[in-house]
Design a protein around this nucleic acid. Structure first.
Length: 423
RNA sequence: GUGGGUGUAGCUCAGUUGGCAGAGCGCUAGGUUGUGGUCCUGGAUGUCGAGGGUUCAAGCCCCUUCACUCACCCCA
């Protein structure tokens, strides 16, 4: 096996697939800018501490999925597994809250997690990330979900559903956790091995276990919603009311728990059915405690991440293709003199915005006509020795087979003119 | 990390009880000395994922390993 191979779980996004990526990126940027978000670009490497502190030491991401290594000086560095931690780090480091605590950012880029690859899951994957700092109001929670919904609808995706839940806050979460732990303890004979483990590491996770026996045992389990304090309850009700008012369809999903420690109150996920087990295309939530935890002041925040790769895959599954870019003109130059002229013409045409190609391999007219056809050329310019001598190049319309004769003195102007007339 | 499936031409895949490595598409050259798409004819392209074993003989059987893939776990 050839060793010069891409790393496992990494992939090349090839030109034949890039159009959808560009389309998604363009739509997202336009929408976010319209909604008042500013782009921010963040590094791919951070000190390990940035992620360990924010995501949670005991989470799977930090425990076993990060690409972590010492640099030459011995500092422990990590390839970012998600964007929010870096976003908060930047917000705090530049003391952005000092001049204006209310900030809205988005960023697009690669993330890295060393998991076993499968459908819709890669070790380098891309996220489109948006965060709002400094607003506690439930209106921005609803607004972010609305924004996701709008983006997906603009991309023509309809099989996506928003799931929302509230995880409570430090006031109400402890009571809930106590109640849940009590129940887990009493039912521990019936739980699957994974849930026995979760009981210790991340009790919330037992709520969305897929093993039927666990589901049955935990049917009566308390949920975060049962224990919400008055403020959290009101916050959640507002989110739901506003979404209804704006005709955003959603499912209240009390099994929706998110894996990162920093979430509080609103948690949401956009799910699809067309991607096998990887149902989450976007996910996010509120993290009112994280800015402070990362050394900043007590400032609330909320954000989401869209799984770019997954989104593109959903679109591919629904055959939402983007148009292939075809060629405007293919120049067939036969002989050395014609080839040299053809080179200058093609460059000039490129500069004038005409997508034009020429072939230098000295092939036959027939072979080049085939190539022009393969490239989808709208026109072919034929410049053979005869045409040069007689000062009469042939411009052939490949759809109508119509051919006109143009002078070899300044064919670029004639061609540009022809394109203007047709467009 | 655990389990299942799959590795044969650039792509999609056949390959029988172990007996000369194949097809379609694509590529390429012709079919009127200079006109594409359809059609016809010819041509090129293989470490049968890799390493080892069994055998007179292995793409096929056995062992090891790697990769891809799906699922679990977890998450976007």
């Amino acid at each position: 096996m050839n060793n010069m191979q891409i790393i496992r779980g990494f992939r090349d996004i090839l030109p034949e697939n890039i159009k959808l990526w560009q389309k998604v990126e363009k739509e997202a940027k336009e929408l976010f800018e319209d909604f008042g978000f500013d782009e921010i670009r963040l590094p791919v490497l951070e000190k390990t501490e940035v992620f360990a502190r924010s995501i949670g030491e005991a989470t799977d991401i930090v425990e076993k999925e990060m690409y972590t290594f010492p640099d030459r000086k011995g500092d422990k560095l990590t390839l970012r597994p998600e964007a929010t931690a870096s976003m908060v780090r930047a917000y705090v480091q530049h003391k952005m809250y000092a001049s204006d605590p209310v900030r809205k950012f988005y960023t697009i880029g690669p993330m890295f997690r060393r998991e076993r690859p499968q459908k819709g899951r890669y070790r380098q994957f891309y996220q489109i990330d948006a965060e709002i700092f400094g607003v506690e109001s439930a209106y921005v929670d609803a607004n972010l979900i609305f924004l996701l919904n709008e983006l997906f609808s603009r991309l023509g995706l309809s099989d996506l559903k928003a799931h929302i839940n509230s995880l409570g806050c430090p006031d109400c979460r402890p009571d809930f956790q106590k109640a849940l732990l009590n129940l887990l303890e009493s039912k521990k004979e019936e739980l699957c091995p994974d849930c026995i483990r979760r009981k210790e590491s991340n009790p919330l996770r037992t709520l969305d276990c897929k093993v039927p026996q666990c589901k049955e045992a935990l049917k009566e389990a308390p949920t975060t919603l049962d224990f919400l304090c008055k403020e959290c309850h009101g916050h959640f009700e507002t989110v739901k009311r506003v979404l209804k008012q704006q005709n955003v369809e959603f499912i209240e999903d009390k099994t929706l728990v998110r894996g990162l420690d920093y979430y509080t109150r609103t948690a949401f996920e956009i799910q699809t059915t067309s991607l096998g087990a990887q149902s989450a295309v976007a996910g996010g939530g509120r993290y009112d405690l994280l800015v402070k935890e990362m050394g900043g002041p007590d400032i609330p925040a909320i954000g989401f991440a869209i799984g770019f790769d997954r989104l593109v895959e959903v679109m591919e599954a629904l055959e939402k293709s983007a148009d292939k870019q075809l060629l405007d003109l293919f120049i067939i130059a036969l002989g050395d003199a014609a080839t040299e002229k053809g080179y200058y013409w093609s460059t000039d045409l490129n500069l004038k915005g005409i997508r034009c190609e020429i072939d230098y391999r000295g092939k036959s007219l027939k072979a080049l006509m085939k190539r022009a056809d393969k490239l989808g050329a709208k026109y072919v310019l034929i410049a053979g020795e005869k045409e040069i001598k007689e000062n009469a190049l042939i411009l052939r319309n490949m759809n109508t087979r119509e051919q006109i004769s143009i002078s070899a003195d300044n064919p670029v102007a004639d061609i540009v003119g022809a394109f203007k007339k047709n467009n």
